[in-house]
Each structure stands twice: as C-alpha cells, then as structure tokens.
C-alpha cells in the first residue's frame, strides 16, 4: 500500500503555436511543474475545469505525449527516458479509459476484435476464454462478442472500453472523465463497476474529472488544477478545501437536495487566456480574496505533514475552512 507505483517529478508540457498569417508565435504551458506520488492501490482524483491541463496530465503520465520537462517513474523505471520499443512491454501494466465512448471504438471492429487488439498489439496469443471472461467482468453478455460498437448503448460502449483497458491485467488505469458523456444513471453504474474492479483486481487509478462531488465520493485523495498548475492537494477527500478555487468548485456543484439550496457567490472576472497568463497567481482575476501580492507573485505549492498541499498567499484558517452545509 505504501509503495508509490507512479511518481511524477516536475512534469511540464508546453504547446507552441507557430506564427501564421501575421499572428506571432505563441506558447502555453498546459501542465506546469506537477509532482505527485501515486501509491499502490490509491485512487487519485484530478479535478479542474476545461483547459486546466488535466487531460494533458493524463496523457503525460502514460507517455502518450512527450513532456517538455520533468520525469514519470512507473514502478521505479523512468518511462520518459525509454524508447517506444522499450516502453511497449511496460504498457501491459498501464491502460487508459477514454471520455468519449463513441470515438474510442473503431467502428469497423467487432467487440471481440476490440478485446483482442491489446494482445495483437503486444504480439501475445489471446488466452482461450479471455474474451468471455473480460465481457463478464464488466457486465456485458458474451453473446455480444460478434456485434459492432454501433449496436451498443453509450453505457455498454464504456464498459467495453473498460474491458479493453483490463485485457492485459494492468496494475494502473488512467480514467479520463469516463462518465462525463453518460447519463447520470449510467454514470453511477460505471462508477460502481470501477469501484468493484478496484477491489477485485487491486487496481490503482488516476481519475480525471470536472465533477468535484464525484471525485470526493470516488477518490482517496484529490489534486485540484487550475490553468496548468496544481493549486491544492487534499490527502483526505472529506477535508474541507482551503484554496478559494477549490471552495468555488465545491459551491458550484448542484447538490440534489432542495433543503441545501443556497445563493452562490458567483465567481466574477474572466478566466485569463492560457497563452497570456498574469505574472502572479493565475486565479487572482477571479479570486474574492486577491491582493496585490497575488497579482504580482505566483504562490508556490507548500505541503504540510498531513499530505495537504496548497498554493495560496491568503488561505483561510483551517478551522474556518470553507466547509459547506
């Protein structure tokens, strides 16, 4: 339990757009200096809004895109230094589930083809009975093996995506918003399935989401990102957040209880362009507690002994922390 399976150190990714049609070249830091230990058996939730870099981070961790700085260690090996060929056997131990269950399946592949693909790619024989076993594992009928993806519902497609990720019995799954394009009732089904698989197979998850409520339910610790940087790490999802952005995220979630109805203090101010971030704290333009210090100097992420980390010049006192009703 205590061994880190995945370790990120100073992981960064910059995207450059070359100059074109009179527009000057520009660049943005999609992920800036992220360090994180993912312990064996943990479920780390990465939460943030679109453009915060959470999907880029997910792809950096699996080295689907190359970092511009920093390292990723998987079970002790620095995978950022490996060639694609040397990386291939390691890929049996890590897999990804994607957000869009429609575009994540090749329309020409039958369900059995989808589940055999991981073995083909790795040059391994398909163990007899493995396809049936995988379908059963995610709650799909083995009778469907000859069907095409367009014959499945969104929820069934996502189950198939999970089965494909599990085909080579990995230790580590990156879940990139696996429920964001599904109905709530199906979302809950998929989350329940992921919980069961975690317990049965002893999986470690990196769960990317925009839904703080879901992350607080599903994850063992939470990383909050804003415009490429980690602003807060909550070692215990039940703890009240201290960063004003995390508090705002929490207050923005719609709790299904009319008795808990409240007037939001909506965030004012605009989200700065990621190509032109202000010199100070990126959240200062929308933060109710921002001062001149925030606008000129970026806060650094400071961890306490309990595993909580915060990047804020003026955090509220822990006792007065923004616990919601």
């Amino acid at each position: 339990m205590a061994e880190p399976l995945v370790t990120l150190r100073g992981l960064s990714r910059r995207f450059d757009t070359p100059a074109a049609f009179g527009r000057p070249a520009r660049s943005m830091m999609a992920v800036r200096d992220v360090s994180l230990d993912i312990l064996c058996g943990a479920t780390i939730g990465v939460v943030g809004e679109s453009g915060c870099g959470k999907s880029t981070l997910a792809r950096l961790v699996l080295r689907l895109i190359e970092p511009t700085g920093g390292t990723v260690h998987f079970d002790g090996a620095d995978i950022t230094a490996l060639s694609a060929r040397a990386m291939r056997p390691l890929r049996q131990r890590m897999a990804m589930v994607f957000q869009d269950p429609y575009s994540s399946l090749d329309p020409r592949f039958r369900i059995s083809d989808v589940l055999e693909e991981p073995f083909r790619v790795q040059g391994l024989p398909v163990p007899p009975g493995r396809i049936t076993e995988l379908l059963g594992l995610v709650g799909l009928s083995p009778a469907m093996a000859g069907n095409y993806p367009h014959q499945l519902s969104g929820g069934q497609r996502q189950r198939l995506g999970i089965a494909r990720a599990l085909a080579l019995s990995p230790d580590f799954l990156v879940l990139d918003e696996p429920t964001a394009s599904l109905d709530v009732s199906i979302q809950a089904q998929i989350i329940a399935l992921l919980e069961r698989l975690r317990a049965e197979l002893g999986l470690t998850y990196l769960f990317i989401s925009h839904d703080l409520g879901l992350v607080r339910y599903f994850c063992s610790s939470i990383v909050v990102m804003y415009l490429g940087s980690v602003v807060e790490v909550l070692a215990d999802p039940a703890l009240p957040p201290r960063h004003p952005y995390t508090s705002a995220l929490m207050e923005s979630s719609f709790i299904p209880d009319p008795a808990a109805r409240r007037l939001l203090a909506p965030l004012t101010g605009e989200i700065p362009s990621p190509y032109n971030l202000p010199p100070g704290c990126a959240f200062a333009t929308r933060c109710p507690a921002a001062t001149d210090l925030c606008r000129h100097t970026a806060p650094t992420l400071i961890s306490d002994t309990g595993g909580h980390a915060l990047a804020c010049h003026h955090p509220p006192e822990p006792a007065a922390g923004g616990a919601t009703p």
Binding site: A95, F98, S104, D106, R120, V121
Partner: peptide
C-alpha cells in the same frame, strides 16, 4: 485524431499497426 487511435497507442501499438489496422481500413 479519433480516440480509438490514441487507445491503440496507449496499448503499445506500433505505427504500422495503427496505419494498417485502423487508419487505412477506415
């Protein structure tokens, strides 16, 4: 740019595999 191509890559698929199994048939 389809996700299934990225999925194949995440499983360790080579460029040739992606070209001949996914891209050219489609």
């Amino acid at each position: 740019a389809e996700t299934y191509v990225e999925a194949a890559r995440s499983l360790g698929a080579s460029d040739a595999f992606i070209l001949f199994r996914h891209l050219i048939p489609n």
